[in-house]
Simulated scan of single mutants.
Amino acid sequence: MARYRGPLDKLSRREGFNLYLKGERSYTEKTAIAKRNYAPGQHGKNNKKMTQYGIQLRSKQALKRIYGVLEKQFRKYFEEADRKAGKTDEALMQILESRLDTVVFQMGFAVNRRTARQMIRHGHFLINGKRVDIPSYRLRAGDIVEIKEGSRTIQQVKEGMELAEKLNKSPVWLDVNKDQFKGTFTRLPSLEDMDVPVNLQDIIELYSK
């Protein structure tokens, strides 16, 4: 599947805020968004007022880039969320947060979602004791994510766990046992549990046109 392989800092600059895509560096003042807080390109410094459509589009693009999801898959997620009973915005975020690559990152086993995807594809993780190498695999309540015994000493795991400890990151819907290199996806998170950096209503309105 095609993926964006360009500079990650450029994506944050395009959206106008830190998307935290580069691991530990994203949490320092060395990021490009901290040094050049304007969009990339020769017209990046122009403060042109955006239309309502432009604002909605930027919200969608930012959320897609945070989770590393392409347009076709993101639209499918939205359509699935829209069919569910309850709030569409909450259902959409639950779908994104239940992806295996996001859970691996949130558990602190990778410094970012991109690294988590690479590790998953290389077969470093077990779900309920079985190898799963699909980053978009969706977890259900009670599923146990575990790093394979032979993969627990690789550098990516070490860096992920060190960063998670520094950030004191512990989402309430995950139960992580770092000593055993495993964690449980205890439940779907609610909107109140999550720190959503974009206006989800913008995305709903954009796709509802």
Rank of each mutant, 00 (worst) to 15 (best):
R131A: 14
F125S: 09
T31Y: 05
F74S: 04
M50K: 04
I95T: 06
Q73C: 01
I120F: 06
R117W: 07
N112C: 13
P135Q: 03
Q61V: 04
H124R: 08
Q52P: 01
E90K: 01
F105D: 09
F105Q: 09
P135N: 03
D133V: 00
L126F: 04
E80Y: 02
S26E: 00
D133L: 00
L63V: 11
R117N: 09
R58C: 00
A85C: 02
Y77R: 11
H122T: 04
F74D: 06
G68R: 09
A81R: 10
E90Q: 15
L57W: 06
N112K: 02
L92N: 04
R113A: 07
A110Q: 12
R75L: 13
H43I: 00
I33D: 05
F105Y: 15
Y53C: 01
R121E: 15
Y137L: 02
Y38R: 11
Q106A: 14
Y67A: 06
L63S: 09
R83T: 11
H122G: 06
K30S: 14
K64N: 03
Y53R: 15
F105N: 13
L96W: 04
D82H: 15
M50Q: 10
E24W: 00
R58I: 08
F74P: 07
G68N: 03
T115N: 13
M107F: 01
A110D: 12
S59L: 05
R114E: 03
F109C: 11
K72Q: 11
T115E: 15
V104G: 07
I95D: 01
F109N: 08
Q118W: 03
G129P: 04
S59P: 10
T102E: 02
K76C: 02
Q73Y: 08
T115I: 15
D101W: 06
I120Y: 06
H43Q: 10
G86Y: 06
R58E: 09
R99W: 13
G129F: 05
V104H: 04
K48W: 07
S98I: 02
I134D: 13
A116V: 03
Y27P: 03
K35G: 09
G123L: 00
F105I: 01
Y38N: 03
E80W: 00
I33W: 10
